[in-house]
Design a protein around this nucleic acid. Structure first.
Lengths: 217, 217
DNA sequence: TTGAATACCAAGCGCTTGCTTGGTAGCGTT
DNA sequence: AACGCTACCAAGCAAGCGCTTGGTATTCAA
């Protein structure tokens, strides 16, 4: 059981399986691409670039260069550039869903579960836990309608966890779907202003502030 | 005084100057481009296209075709494609700022002022009042650092109004800057899910729900 | 030993892109 | 009548793009 005694854990993961363990089991299940395979390395490089510069401003030549191959060789692994984006989003969604399920499972009270959801998504958005997560919101329009559907299908359970958690906590308004949408907007926008370094808020503090607004005690 | 008796007003504008009047006075001041001039028509067409398909997926040929000229002729009005985006953002910011100032001036209590801000921004985001507003958030990264600065300078007063209004209402947390950031995220994300038609929420109802969360009575 | 599969290279095709250049038509001023 | 200004056209350039094609090295099972 290597990796269990890993020193650094992210805040949500305390008491849960390690990120590495989680990913390894998902790879073993066959629902996630092995990050050490050629395809996996391409997906990671693409995710990083899409997050940094956006989909349209990233070229296949850059993605290829990032893993040390020529641009044409990419198309032995993906049908098109959009296929790369779609695959990145699918992988990110699968991993984020597993992480979210694990996060709420480790929380006891309804309010603690909501806190775990918020923190889990914040960590995903800021690349601490799920590299490429912010692409899901930022580059949604770059995806064809068909690809959008394929990602949405994977995202369903992720959102179901959210809705049940919000429904369990007593949030004002009594409309979990609306609360979720406002929360998603508020949290994902933090990607463009939150700086973890410095004397400002930490991610955990931010999560608590958000919790205080959306589920006042 | 043509246009004053305009039948349709947006919700925030009740009792205020009409959108046409406001824009006309800003044009007269020289801070806004006349929408009937060649440059103004190009800016409007570009704003519409950037909003629909995004900056990167819009070509200068499409913008030109929208106003019935050839692509090369665009560059007698703008230095580059990015200059078009920057100009759109500047114009949008100037107009939105004037509208926001007018909105809070028409509200009496601190809480009403916050409500007016929220509704005003919602109407802007959904293109009912300020076409192209959503570009400010969606395409921010498409702008060079210099252009970002030039837009930020114009945006300062807009954000100042927000911060003072939030500071005046008693929002939980006691951190107007954080509240503003969460609000901006929540409101601008509504662009991707809110459908005004149908039996769902209206924009005014949405504003009230948001107000209830961010400034509970 | 052969054959199939995987992963990649080398070269470049066809197309689109933002943008340039040189010239012209119309209009108002002097 | 001559000038200058604005607005635009016609044509196309250079660069960059996603992607294709034909071939090669390596691996591994039969």
């Amino acid at each position: 059981m290597k990796g269990v005694s890993s020193v650094q854990r992210d805040a949500v993961g305390a008491g849960m399986v390690s990120p590495r363990q989680l990913m390894a089991s998902l790879v073993a299940e066959g629902v996630l691409t092995d990050p050490d395979s050629p395809r996996g390395r391409l997906l990671n490089a693409a995710a990083r670039l899409f997050e940094q510069k956006g989909f349209a401003r990233t070229t296949v030549r850059e993605i290829a260069a990032e893993v040390g191959i020529l641009s044409g060789s990419i198309f032995h692994h993906f049908a098109s550039k959009e296929d790369i984006l779609c695959s990145v989003m699918q992988e990110v969604t699968v991993y984020a869903r597993a992480r979210m399920a694990s996060a709420v499972a480790g929380a006891d009270s309804p309010r603690e579960r909501l806190r775990a959801c918020i923190l889990c998504e914040l960590e995903a958005i800021h690349g601490l836990a799920v590299p490429g997560f912010s692409i899901l919101v930022a580059e949604w329009r770059s995806l064809s309608a068909d690809s959008q559907r394929s990602v949405l299908r994977l995202r369903d359970e992720y959102e179901r966890i959210w809705l049940e958690t919000i429904g369990g906590a007593d949030c004002p308004g009594g409309d979990p779907a609306l609360t979720r949408r406002l929360l998603l907007g508020a949290l994902s926008h933090s990607h463009s202003w939150f700086k973890p370094k410095g004397r400002g808020l930490s991610l955990v503090e931010l999560a608590d502030r958000v919790l205080l607004i959306f589920a006042p005690q």
